[in-house]
Simulated scan of single mutants.
Amino acid sequence: MRRFVAGMLAVLMLAAVGCSGRSSSGSQEMVIRMNIGTNPPSLDPRVTTGLPESHVEIALFEGLMRLDEKGNAIPGAAERYEVNDDATVFTFYLRDGLKWSNGDPLTAEDFVWTWKSVP
């Protein structure tokens, strides 16, 4: 029993250290570390099919819609959407202020281009 308690205490201490907000250099940088098992051949969601790359893509990209904790589709980059009566036209309204990582504005044309460029 003592070994079990000592082992659990060691695990908890390591977890607490791993959750600190500071890196070893003392900065407040935000870092995501993921063990995906292999190097993905691509991080382009239009062409990838494997599970390792999908984990990274989910962390990197937000689509028009995303899944909530129950697996239901909810707006992501879209603020809201409308569907016509026969469900053949979906109109998405983007959230204000969306930007690429370089600061350029993210536009509806970017989403259109992505869909049209899928092989």
Rank of each mutant, 00 (worst) to 15 (best):
G63H: 12
E79V: 07
R46N: 03
A87K: 07
I74P: 09
E82D: 12
N72L: 03
T88C: 05
I58Y: 12
K70V: 15
L67Q: 14
N84F: 11
P40F: 11
T48V: 04
N39I: 03
E79D: 11
G50F: 01
F61Y: 12
L60T: 06
Y81K: 06
S42K: 08
V89M: 12
R66M: 13
R46A: 10
G50T: 09
L67P: 00
N72K: 09
T91R: 10
V83E: 14
A77Q: 03
P52G: 02
P52V: 01
Y81P: 04
T91M: 13
H55S: 08
S42Y: 01
V83I: 14
F61S: 09
E53R: 03
G50A: 09
A77P: 08
P40W: 03
A87C: 10
T48G: 07
D86L: 09
D85R: 15
I74Q: 08
T91P: 05
I58Q: 02
F92K: 13
E82Q: 12
P40C: 09
L43R: 10
R66H: 11
F90L: 15
L51I: 05
G50S: 05
G76N: 07
K70E: 13
A59T: 04
E53V: 00
P40D: 08
Y81A: 12
Y93L: 05
G76I: 04
E82H: 13
V47Q: 03
F92Y: 14
L43F: 10
D86V: 14
T88P: 02
S42P: 08
V89C: 09
L64V: 04
V56L: 10
S42R: 00
D44Y: 14
S42Q: 02
K70R: 14
N84M: 14
P40Y: 02
E57L: 03
E82T: 11
Y93Q: 03
V47M: 10
D68S: 15
E69G: 01
A77M: 00
P45L: 01
G63V: 04
F61C: 07
N72Q: 03
P45M: 01
Y93E: 10
G71N: 11
R66V: 11
P40N: 04
G63S: 06
Y81D: 10
D86T: 15
T91S: 07
G76F: 00
Y93D: 09
A73Q: 14
L60G: 02
T91V: 12
I58N: 06
